[in-house]
Computed example of a mutant assay.
Amino acid sequence: MTVRIVVADDQELVRAGFSMILDAQPDFEVVAEANDGVEAVDAVRAHQPDVLLLDIRMPTMNGIEAAGIVCAETGCRVIMLTTFDQDDYVYDALRAGASGFLLKDVRREDLVHAVRVVTAGEALLAPAITRKLIAKFTSHGTGPSVALSAERLAVLTARERETLKMLARGLTNAELADAMVVSEHTVKTHVSNVLSKLGLRDRIQAVIAAYETGLAVPGTNG
C-alpha cells in the first residue's frame, strides 16, 4: 500500500527537503505541497492523502487552525512541524486533533519513521510525554476533548477496557504485551478494537478518552 502525503510549510527549502526524503521511500508518494494553511486544507480536500505534514507557523492560516479543519473533515493523520520544543505547542497540536509532533531538525530516518508510525495509528509522542501532557491538562479540566461519555465504554470487553486503561499510562505495545501476558499481535488487535468501537482516531485520542471518561485518573498508575 502506498502512503499518500501532503507537505505544508511556508519555507520552500524545508518543504522541498521533506518531500524529497519522503518521495524516496518506495511505499511513499508526496501528492502535493502547500505554502500555507489554506493551501494545505485545499490540498487535503483535493488529494485525500493519508498523512499531512503541517508547519505550525504559516501565513494566511496557521497550522493549528488548518489541523483542526483537516482532522474534523477527514481521516488524514496530521503531523505538526515546528522549530520550538514547548509543551504549549504540543498541547495545541493534540487539541487540534493531530497525531504527532516533530521538530524541523528531525533526522531523515526519524521523519520516515514518524510517517509510518501515524499511518499505523500510533501516537507520535514518547509515552512519558503523552502521559505527562494528558494528565497535566485533564487534571485542570482544560484538556483536549474527544466528547466521549463513560457509558460509551460499555461497548468494550473487559480485556479492551484493560488495554485502554494501560494506554493511558503511556505504555508501548511491548510493555502492554508484558503486562497482559499476551503477544504484541494480540495487543495490536485489542488497541485496534478499542479505537474502532469508540470511534477514535489514534492512540492519543484513546489516552484522552481514558482520562475523560474517568477510566484513568491523572497522577495514578491505574
Rank of each mutant, 00 (worst) to 15 (best):
D42W: 04
S196F: 09
H113F: 15
G199H: 07
A128N: 11
A216W: 05
M20D: 13
E175G: 06
V38K: 10
P26R: 06
S196M: 05
M180A: 03
P59G: 02
K188F: 07
D105W: 01
H185N: 14
G68H: 09
A210T: 01
P218R: 09
D110W: 12
G100D: 01
N193P: 02
D36Y: 04
V78Y: 08
A34T: 05
A158F: 09
R201W: 02
E73H: 15
Y211W: 12
R4P: 11
V146K: 10
A216S: 13
R169G: 05
G143R: 08
V7A: 06
I56Q: 01
G143D: 05
V118H: 11
T82Q: 04
E65N: 07
R4K: 14
R131D: 09
L153S: 00
E73G: 10
T60N: 08
V181I: 00
L54I: 02
A206I: 14
A93F: 06
E65Q: 12
E33L: 12
T83H: 05
S192H: 08
E212L: 01
S99Q: 08
L148C: 06
S139W: 08
V51I: 07
T2C: 07
A8Y: 11
A40G: 08
S145P: 00
M1S: 15
T119Q: 14
S19V: 00
A209Y: 08
V155G: 00
G97L: 14
K136V: 05
A177D: 02
D202S: 07
A147T: 12
E33R: 15
A158L: 13
L124F: 03
D105G: 12
T138N: 10
Q86P: 01
